[in-house]
């Protein structure tokens, strides 16, 4: 746990007035506010840090204690006790007032918790009924996990959330789960949970939206004379393909409806494109070489 220099965070000096603190905070908050930094985790982290700095420095009593203990935050135990007492005294005064703390305890640094305690309540009272903060989570799945809609259980902030992930979800797609973000008391609206999907492709198939692409080896004899070729689809089914005589390398065939399931369109699938790479034989015997020589003379 490291000492956090709140003055440095806000870019102000230790003699800054309340007005200067507020001005510095507002300037940084405008820059890093989550509403103006879409899906920017770095900005979110920075926003939490400057909020913490503001919480401490904009409260004259907290600031006094912070200045007094500063880097010797380990000795702040006495202050924590005093804070507890004060909290109890303030209880009756605050009764009935709608307050909303837009930050969870885990949003504060360990340094902050050690110095000011876990029961710390934000000074600013925002208007009651505000929406709780949205949470962001990431979920990694294999490409083969999304061939059918499946139920999954996620643990977010120590809470298990059951959800059905629709088949065919895109890599990096974000879905919103309503009301599973920050819980808000006093009639406010709970935040939402945003899940970003990281789809890992550990198959020989390449995906482009709903279509799949695969390259398969074709031996030279089958390419010239034609014949049957068994290929395996992404759902591990065997398909018999008829290879036309004189098939050229890089020839591509489309297998309709053998691609990825289309997101939220049950029973509909993309296509599978199979490209042939003709494999020439190696380690030829003298007999084979002789036959190929004869063949080449015929052309």
């Amino acid at each position: 746990m490291e000492y956090v220099d709140y003055y440095k965070l806000l870019g102000i000096n230790k003699s800054a007035s309340e007005k200067e603190i507020k001005k510095a905070y507002r300037k940084l908050a405008r820059k890093y506010h989550p509403d103006v930094n879409l899906n920017n985790k770095e900005a979110e982290k920075k926003f939490k840090q400057i909020n913490e700095a503001n919480e401490v420095l904009s409260n004259p009593e907290n600031r006094k204690k912070y200045d007094a203990y500063g880097e010797n935050w380990q000795h702040a135990e006495e202050f924590k006790k005093a804070k507890e007492q004060q909290k109890q005294q303030n209880y009756s005064y605050k009764g009935g007032q709608q307050t909303h703390n837009p930050f969870n305890e885990e949003d504060f640094s360990d340094f902050f918790s050690a110095m000011f305690g876990d029961g710390f309540q934000q000074k600013n009272t925002r208007r009651g009924g505000f929406k709780g903060r949205d949470y962001n989570a990431q979920l990694q799945l294999n490409l083969t996990d999304i061939l059918a809609s499946k139920k999954h259980t996620l643990t977010v902030n120590n809470k298990n959330i059951r959800l059905t992930i629709p088949a065919g979800i895109e890599n990096r797609q974000v879905i919103k789960i309503k009301n599973q973000g920050e819980k808000v008391a006093n009639g406010g609206i709970n935040g939402d949970l945003y899940i970003e999907f990281n789809i890992v492709n550990n198959t020989p198939f390449r995906r482009d939206k709903n279509n799949l692409y695969v390259t398969v080896d074709l031996d030279v004899y089958k390419a010239i004379l034609g014949g049957d070729l068994i290929i395996t689809t992404i759902d591990n089914k065997k398909l018999k393909l008829q290879i036309k005589p004189e098939t050229q390398t890089d020839t591509q065939v489309k297998l309709k409806g053998k691609g990825m399931p289309i997101y939220k369109k049950e029973g509909q699938f993309g296509d599978l494109f199979v490209k042939f790479k003709i494999k020439t034989p190696t380690n030829l015997t003298s007999k084979e070489k002789e036959l190929f020589t004869q063949l080449s003379k015929l052309r």
């Binding site: 507002r26 908050a29 405008r30 506010h33 509403d35 103006v36 879409l38 925002r126 208007r127 505000f130 929406k131 609206i189």
Partner: peptide, 29 residues
């Protein structure tokens, strides 16, 4: 509206600036 409330009341952003922010965040999205 909730987003505009947060920007207006938390960050003192005026209404003309809200319009600019809204336009730019849609572009970012």
């Amino acid at each position: 509206i909730e987003k505009m409330m947060r920007l207006h009341y938390d960050l003192n952003v005026n209404f003309e600036a809200l319009d600019v922010i809204n336009h730019l965040t849609s572009q970012i999205h």
